[in-house]
Amino acid sequence: MDAVAASGIVKKFGDLTVLHGLDLAIPRGELFALLGPNGSGKTTFFRILTTLIAPDAGSAVVGGQDAVGDPAAVRAKIGVVFQSPSLDKKLTVRENLAYGGALYGMHGSPLAARIAELSGALRLEDKMDRLVETLSGGQQRRVEIAKCLLARPEILLLDEPSTGLDPAARMDLWSLVASLRATHGMTVIFTSHLMDESARADRVGIMSDGRLVRVDTPAALLAEAGPEILRVATVDAMRVSEFLKSQCGLAPHALEGEVRASASGAHAVCVRLTAALPDAVGSTTVSKPTLEDVFLFQTGKRLNE
């Protein structure tokens, strides 16, 4: 059985359709990334999976339970890490965890034991009696994650988990996710607008304008983008684009101050281009494709504008 099975999900806010019939299945144990820019609908989809809102049409089955018909059953199976932490900053770490556990019906010595266990795993032992507002962003995120893991969820959902974290805290977070998956086979689903973060996932769903444009492994998506990516920094994107199209047989994307194209033998193209349009070309770069290139080629838009 899949951890998530969504089909035909439609969500409208007034006249605005935010999700246009999304279909997605995520098998158990997978690390899945929903990649898309702000406004792509990924957060709305996230809120449907976490039962915070109901779709206008379609069905969402999360952890084998119907997120629309029986949201309480889904809530018992998921742990959710929000972008802005759902902690009470006026309370201590221990109090936050105790109340968090109580919301899942936990109490007494099993709860105390679980809190002790997680505070060790998340290196929070010496912070337990500090007010949350005195902790750093990375530490708060660890408390938040500890709170979400208290009731041993089958599925962990994280909304933009790296936001507000410094690089060390990010590495921490992902090594924790890796160990949770290794030890508990936990399914982990996260949203992101960062391509390097999404590249960690087993599979990536690319979202744009309320649609899942592509779902595949990062390797397969990158392979589709071609072996090499040519980036040309230019003051005249139209001319460069036209040249690459007509003279080199490429399918370039003209962006603000930049033209990008998938090309094999990109270095040879660079030489021809620079010779033909010396005044228009600022610099050329040849690199391996990233998920950002995949996003651009799939949607014609940049990931982070």
Partner: peptide, 17 residues
């Protein structure tokens, strides 16, 4: 305040009646 600061979200995704 709980809604604005996010605490309420954590309550709403918990299996609480």
């Amino acid at each position: 305040e709980d809604r604005r600061e996010g605490f309420l979200q954590g309550v709403l995704v918990a299996p609480v009646a």
